[in-house]
Amino acid sequence: MTMNNQLTVRPVATDIEAQETRRLLTEQIHARIEAPMPTGPVHDDGTLRPTLIGAWRDNRLTGAALIGPAIQAARQMLAGQGTTPGTYQAAQTIMRHVAMSEAIAVHPDHRHEGIGLEIKRFCDTWAARH
């Protein structure tokens, strides 16, 4: 997705982009990110899996996101309800069909420019396709 002001939002494509994206997320989000974070780009085969998203302007990373299956929600369901067959199946369905934006961060120098909103919109579209 490209905006008129040259902002490009997309999944990371290289190990270096993944490293930069992970760094931005961990530096800007002071709470521990519970979801598994990929170490590199993820092959998009249409399935729901943890994916790093980056927002670039002029070849510089300005924002980032981690999106993937709602693993924590499924775990909480199992912890609260036990492991009855129905609960286990429901948790599996959540992990296969429910996407969650685990983290969205924008570099401090680029806040209040609408980057976070564009990342959120991209993640919503990405989730609908996966």
Rank of each mutant, 00 (worst) to 15 (best):
R121E: 05
L52V: 02
A105S: 15
E17F: 09
G82M: 07
T62W: 04
R32F: 11
T87R: 03
C123E: 14
G68K: 07
I16D: 13
G63S: 09
T51M: 02
I16G: 02
R49F: 00
A31K: 13
V106Y: 10
A35N: 01
G40F: 11
K120N: 03
R22E: 06
E118G: 00
M1C: 03
Q72N: 11
G46D: 09
P36E: 06
A65C: 12
Q6N: 15
A79E: 10
I115M: 03
Q72G: 06
D44A: 12
A55F: 03
L52A: 01
M1K: 05
H43E: 13
F122L: 11
A70F: 11
R96M: 09
G80K: 10
G54K: 08
T2L: 06
A18G: 15
H97Q: 12
L52S: 01
A64W: 04
E20S: 13
R10F: 13
M100G: 02
D58I: 01
H97C: 02
I53V: 14
I29Y: 09
T83L: 08
C123F: 05
W56I: 00
H97F: 03
A99G: 15
V106I: 13
P108A: 03
P50V: 10
T39S: 09
T14N: 06
E113W: 06
A91K: 05
D45L: 10
E113R: 13
A90C: 02
N5H: 12
M77P: 00
A31P: 00
P108E: 07
A103F: 06
N4W: 04
H43N: 07
Q89R: 13
A74W: 08
I71H: 05
G46L: 06
I115Y: 04
C123L: 06
V98W: 04
A55L: 03
H97M: 01
I104G: 04
Q72I: 12
L25Q: 06
A74K: 05
Q6A: 11
T125K: 13
G80N: 11
P85H: 03
M77T: 08
D58H: 12
G46M: 07
G80H: 10
